[in-house]
């Protein structure tokens, strides 16, 4: 995709989001859109490490909760405004990401994946035992009175999430189609060959894990304001981690647009199912879609589209 087209599209989507808040009042829609965007942001983040670099992360919920609890703690301690909370959550997520990056020195493949899961569980245990942020009981967040020029706080949260997601997509695209992106692909394909071709694999993996961690931390930061009551069960929700993997897998992990397509498709389906059937059905839907795609289109929708285009007679 050409750069001008890409930035034009981002600007248009953002403008459309702003325009929407002037037209639609019903808070339900903003709830649903917020969740779809949160899923997209998480999927884009997961894909930076899992898709571009080839390190599968099962611990996404841990990074997300890190962001959410950064908000809870700093809101309680210092009463920081939302933009600052998002920033700090990004830094915290990024730093833990760096730690995860050093793990790649020793752990590869399935062992790395298990380590990420273990890390998420460790973070959860810490939070459960940290009474300042509510421990296992959880804690309430007061919705601030100010919401700029928007009609309601949720409208503002939606616009904030839209902005964050678009920024993440732009970063992901930049990582994917650049010298850095080729370096990450080389690491994914063969780390020894990558090193011997001059790629500083550790440095690039640290970039990848910290960008992933920062994006997930950012994704979790507004969450306490969104749900108004956070406990470990909601912040470390398995569903968050599963979606973060399933969405890129369904969309396709090799290209930056893959996780976006997967997240929009799966996220929208989930929101529709939630109202028309029940939210319990969602777990089933993700499972079925994931299995279907892994068996029928292991390269995801992007891979499928590529194959179809190539197969067409010229």
């Amino acid at each position: 995709m050409k750069s001008t087209v890409f930035w034009g599209a981002l600007a248009t989507i953002f403008a459309a989001g702003l325009a929407l808040t002037g037209v639609v009042q019903n808070e339900y829609y903003y709830n649903a859109l917020y969740l779809i965007l949160q899923g997209t942001l998480m999927a884009v983040a997961w894909n930076v490490l899992g898709g571009f670099t080839g390190y599968v992360n099962f611990g996404s919920a841990g990074f997300f909760a890190l962001g959410a609890y950064t908000t809870v703690a700093l809101n309680k301690a210092l009463g920081l405004p939302l933009p600052l909370l998002i920033l700090v959550a990004g830094v915290v997520g990024g730093l833990v990401g760096v730690g995860l990056g050093y793990l790649t020195l020793r752990l590869k493949g399935v062992y790395f994946a298990i380590a990420t899961l273990a890390m998420s569980i460790v973070i959860e245990t810490l939070v459960v035992n940290w009474s300042y942020v509510g421990g296992a009981k959880g804690s309430y967040m007061l919705t601030p009175d100010t919401h700029l020029w928007f009609d309601s706080y949720i409208q503002m949260l939606f616009v904030v999430m839209l902005l964050l997601t678009l920024a993440a997509v732009a970063i992901s695209r930049m990582l994917n189609s650049s010298r850095l992106g080729r370096g990450l692909s080389a690491i994914r394909d063969d780390e020894v060959a990558a090193e011997c071709a001059g790629v500083p694999t550790l440095r690039l993996k640290l970039v990848s894990t910290s960008v992933m961690g920062a994006m997930m931390g950012v994704a979790g930061a507004p969450f306490p304001y969104f749900v108004t009551f956070v406990d470990p069960l909601s912040a470390f929700n398995l569903f968050i981690a599963v979606n973060a993997i399933a969405m890129p897998m369904i969309g396709g992990t090799a290209h930056w647009i893959g996780p976006v397509i997967g997240a929009l498709l799966l996220g929208t389906t989930q929101e529709i199912v939630k109202v028309t059937i029940s939210s319990e059905m969602n777990v089933l839907i993700v499972g079925v879609m994931l299995v279907a795609f892994i068996t029928l289109a292991p390269q995801g929708i992007v891979g499928l589209a590529r194959k179809l285009r190539r197969g067409r007679p010229k």
Binding site: D189, D190, A193, C196
Partner: peptide, 10 residues
């Protein structure tokens, strides 16, 4: 490399 190690996705 004696046993080729191409970057397969590239």
């Amino acid at each position: 490399f004696q046993i080729p190690k191409p970057f397969r996705s590239l």
